[in-house]
Amino acid sequence: MSKFLKNTFLFSLIVLIIHLLFSFCANSYIDDYYGKLSNGHKNSLVIGTSRALQGIVPSIVDSTIGIQEPKLYNFAFTLSSSPFGKVYYDAIAKKISSEQAGKYSIISIDPWSISENQFLYSIEKLDHSSVLFQLDNVTSHPNFEYLYDKYPDGWGNIIMKRAETSLLIKNAKKLNKNFAGSFSFINQDGYLKVYASLDENVVAKKTSEKLKLYQELADSSKVSEHRMSFLLKIISLLKKQGDVYLVRLPVHEEMLQIEQNYMPDFDIIMTEAISLSNGFYDMTNLDHNFKFTDGNHLEKSSSKIVSMKIGKWIKTLNKQAAFN
């Protein structure tokens, strides 16, 4: 019996070692979220949906303001994973550390992240489909809980995804202008760098599809008190770490039209949130020819410009505050 137990123990040890070795292969190349959920606590955060995920580059905001440490980190996800609500609030609470201090946070707001839709994305349905739902661990590397939950396919799948993204990044410059697909990976600062075709026809097609989808959303959505209350809670939570700024990111003009028709009194609805924050920057009416990959998300060159503008705006606010 002792020989059997010894060999079984040895065998189990091999199983554990293989798992452990493989688990370190998982990195920010494997999907759009893992990188954010496996890099420790962060106390200066960018919060929001995919617009912020692809639109705000924390390292650029920091460098424009002139901040070295603690670094701003993009902890935005997507409309289906991070509308303002309990699931996102809990994830933010776990991401920040009570032992460290933050500097400032940026919250991206728009009509959709404070809405609910009975058919397409009711509060319960959306919260349960969130990548953050019932995820206790949002910091450790490797994040076994996330990997176990999202990757039932074994490590081979993860290794191949990593290799595929690495290869695509390596060859990104060689990609044809007409490249119709897209690929993405999480930067060290949490920003999602998306390589997508900028071919006019491809962008026009994607934009038209996106506009149709959002028009459908607009037709069946309403402002959610639940989401609004969690936006206020998130602002209060982050204010314990430092200043909190609200921004509304630029979108395609037709998308903006849909939003204005859907929620013409957005600024009024946001009054309480704005007054609770350290400032609100509405970038939807900026006179700049931004590029979008699909009418909803900023293209990476435009994200840099937007991030720089946000940095300058915060710097100005800080100067004014110091002056006062």
Binding site: I14, I18, Y148, D153, G154, G156
Partner: peptide, 14 residues
Amino acid sequence: YTAVLLLIITFGYF
């Protein structure tokens, strides 16, 4: 054993 284990861990569905 190790080779079969590797295949299970790498390509298995869990």
